[in-house]
Design a protein around this nucleic acid. Structure first.
Length: 576
DNA sequence: GCCGTTTTCGGCCCGACTGTTTTCAGTCG
């Protein structure tokens, strides 16, 4: 099985090599685009290939379809292998350094034999770069700074890390009289699971005061750039934050432009061109007389093209334009729609707080219910519950529930799906609970067939309501285990099992792409904070981010049901 | 290399900034 990410990487690398070789830039873009498309595909390319439908993937034509076929059949691509002979992989790495693009990478490699970032740094320190054609003293200094920046912020940051910092910064800037409008933009506004940097837009009549405040915020570790229209800082967490000042009558256009995504913006502008319009970060202009006809409000940009406003989370060119044209954009679910949390741990297993503390916090959030789902016995390391302790917990929860009327604690468990595919607790115990979530915590490296068998068995169990963190990935630490997600989604639909959106920032599992796919096949999703302490109950924000990016409406989420409806829905599984 | 309500060739999003130039190339978002 050749994974999508592997195919995508091959095409992305082809694009990079071709760019260094100064090939036709539209050919390069074709490879870049198809790489991005494949990376975002909810289905396995291999499955599509077996069905003979490769060319239905946007951006895949005759030539690329043939290459995909070769990759799948032989595990290799001759065209790519030959290309790699001409440019060492270290030269491609140079492209990751800010200030270094394909032309400079080529220049450094051809003139000085530089084929790694280490060698680039050495050459810059020895001032060998500044004498190259088109280079100079300043350019060399900039490259050294680029290398420093590259070392500091190599990887993308988790949404759960970046968003709170960005909101803190926005709050402090907002307190200034001199700030009129202010908004987060970029991938952070689209709530991507990881972000590159923080983008903030403002309008102000006195930018110098705002900029001064910005570069002196307590969050600032280093000032990277300072100006009246744009400043950039590095926070103590090594996240770059850019602040831009734009004109009030361009704020909407700038916000649209800086929110992206790039693919979304390209589609939008292509549509505009066909209407005799031009869109840039200053506004919408008629081509005929260069008259500006919109720009103050973001919504106008869409409306002028005959589209309703497209919410930032949808702006990935994943069908939002088609949906908008057909008036079929989803009414996205909101945080306020959530009536409860399905995945919480207490001190009884590996959580930090007592059940009582958690229930207090949940009521404060305005929830109607919360499920206590501690680990089961085989997870020794987490103090998992055996049958006796589950029964004990059930008794305590019944007691608590007797004393409250406007809220209910749901008796739950996060039962382990063991390596052999059996569940860690007997059905006899599981049936006494209100809600069972099942999850894999061991045997991540098993063969696909074995993993699929484990999950299939769990979903077919009449008492399992939710599969927790279905792919098992931990961003930056652990790859998803080898499962056929489309098959899991199909089984979930068939068995009336919900799939979890685990809102823990390093998990974010399911991700937006699979969530959208699950929705399309009628599968219910269930957001769980997976909180191990009270403050982590707030992770639901990130769960909602995924839900919205996965096009979910209120009706697609188990968490939006009232307590009565929820209980009825949970029983429905048994009738299968 | 892809794509088509300006279809099988000729297009393919838009602009700012920087540093090196002497009118522009390269990089970035």
């Amino acid at each position: 099985m050749v994974k999508n990410v592997e195919i995508a990487r091959v095409f992305a690398n082809i694009a990079k090599i071709l760019s260094i070789k100064e090939e036709n830039k539209f050919k390069i873009r074709a490879y870049e685009q198809v790489a991005a498309t494949i990376e975002n595909l909810p289905m396995e390319v291999e499955t599509i290939y077996r069905a003979g439908k490769l060319k239905e993937i946007p951006g895949v034509g005759e030539a690329i379809a043939k290459k995909i076929g070769e990759l799948i059949e032989t595990g290799k691509l001759e065209y790519y292998e030959n290309l790699k002979q001409t440019i060492p992989s270290g030269v491609l790495e140079l492209l990751n350094v800010p200030e270094v693009g394909p032309r400079k990478a080529k220049l450094f490699y051809e003139k000085l034999g530089i084929d790694s970032i280490t060698k680039l740094e050495e050459a810059a320190l020895r001032h060998q770069l500044q004498n190259l054609p088109g280079m100079g003293k300043k350019a060399e200094e900039n490259i050294l700074r680029g290398i420093e920046l590259y070392k500091k912020r190599e990887e993308r940051k988790l949404l759960g890390v970046a968003l709170p910092i960005a909101e803190e910064i926005v709050d402090q800037l907002k307190s200034l009289r001199e700030v009129n409008q202010i908004s987060i933009a970029g991938s952070l506004r689209r709530r991507k699971e990881t972000i590159g940097d923080i983008d903030i837009l403002i309008t102000s009549k006195k930018p110098e005061i705002v900029m001064n405040k910005f570069i002196n915020l307590p969050q600032v570790k280093e000032v990277l750039a300072e100006g009246l229209t744009k400043s950039a800082i590095l926070t103590h967490q090594d996240i770059q934050a850019d602040l831009r000042v734009v004109a009030p009558d361009s704020f909407g256009a700038a916000l649209q432009y800086f929110t992206g995504s790039k693919a979304h913006n390209i589609r939008l502008r292509e549509m505009a061109v066909k209407e005799g319009l031009k869109i840039n970060e200053y506004g919408v202009f008629r081509v005929s007389d260069e008259q500006k006809i919109a720009g103050k409000e973001e919504q106008e940009i869409y409306n002028i093209l005959g589209l309703p406003m497209i919410m930032p989370e949808l702006r990935e060119d994943r069908g939002e334009f088609e949906a908008a044209l057909n008036h079929q954009l989803p009414q996205l679910v909101n945080l306020e729609d959530l009536k409860g949390d399905f995945h919480v741990h207490t001190r009884d297993s590996d959580g930090f707080n007592t059940m009582e503390e958690i229930l207090g916090a949940a009521r404060e959030k305005g929830y109607q219910y919360i499920a206590i789902t501690d680990h089961s016995q085989s997870l020794h390391i987490a103090g998992g519950l055996d049958e006796q302790r589950v029964l004990e917990q059930i008794r305590r929860i019944d007691e608590i529930n007797q004393n409250i009327s406007d809220f209910q604690v749901l008796k739950g468990i996060e039962v382990d799906i063991k390596s052999d595919g059996t569940l860690d607790l007997s059905n006899n115990i599981l049936q006494k609970l209100d809600l069972v979530i099942a999850a894999i915590h061991s045997g991540f490296k098993q063969e696909r067939t074995q993993l699929m068998e484990r999950l299939t068995k769990a979903m077919r169990n009449p008492f399992v309501n939710i599969i927790a963190h279905p792919t098992g990935r931990v961003i930056g630490y652990r790859e998803a285990y080898d499962i056929d997600m489309q098959e899991i989604i199909r089984l979930a639909a068939q068995t009336n099992t919900a799939l979890e959106i685990n809102a823990s920032p390093e998990r974010m599992d399911l991700n937006d792409i699979y969530v959208k796919s699950a929705k399309e096949q009628g599968v219910l999703l269930a957001i769980g904070s997976d909180a191990h302490q009270i403050h982590a109950l707030d992770y639901m924000t990130y769960g909602i981010a995924i839900a919205r990016r996965g096009w979910l409406e209120k009706g697609n989420l188990l968490n939006t049901l009232s307590l009565d409806d929820l209980k009825a829905r949970l029983k429905k599984k048994l009738k299968n």
